[in-house]
């Protein structure tokens, strides 16, 4: 495979001790628990019901941040300032889903739930709550 094609493939950024799809190319050696490497990789990638629930909640947070962005009047003195402000708003909107995705790809299976919960708390649309409670 050429380097150009390689650049277009998503290989993930898994932990070093986690089997990856590459292992399937190198041969299906059985893992320590008897499962083959591709099976272990598939198992590690599986989100489970909790993962999908967290995805739904992260999507709800994203909708909240979109509402904040729409309701927030933007006044910036310069075009650069306006562009950077809107870039910040875009990052704020995608942060809940980005957090969910990064936990799913980077955290070991056993540690995903606390990281997902932390993400829900940290990336919740708090400005909406401040506006409602005030």
């Amino acid at each position: 495979m050429s380097r150009d094609e390689d650049a277009l493939r998503w290989e993930g950024d898994d932990e070093l001790d986690r089997a990856t799809a590459d292992d399937a190319d190198a041969g299906s050696a059985p893992g320590p628990d008897g499962a083959s490497a591709p099976d272990a990789a598939r198992e590690a990638r599986r989100r489970g019901p909790l993962g999908w629930l967290m995805l739904a909640l992260a999507a709800a947070s994203t909708v909240g941040w979109i509402a904040i962005m729409v309701l927030n009047p933007v006044q910036q003195p310069s075009l650069l300032g306006l562009a950077m402000y809107q870039l910040g708003e875009l990052l704020a909107v995608i942060a809940p889903l980005l957090w969910w995705f990064c936990v799913g790809r980077l955290a070991p299976v056993g540690r995903r739930a606390p990281w997902w919960l932390a993400g829900l708390v940290v990336t919740a649309p708090w400005p909406l709550a401040v506006g409602v409670l005030a």
Partner: peptide
């Protein structure tokens, strides 16, 4: 990815 998430959270806190 982690740095991008942190940047997003920083933007959220600014708002």
């Amino acid at each position: 990815g982690i740095l991008l998430v942190a940047l997003g959270v920083s933007a959220q806190l600014s708002l």
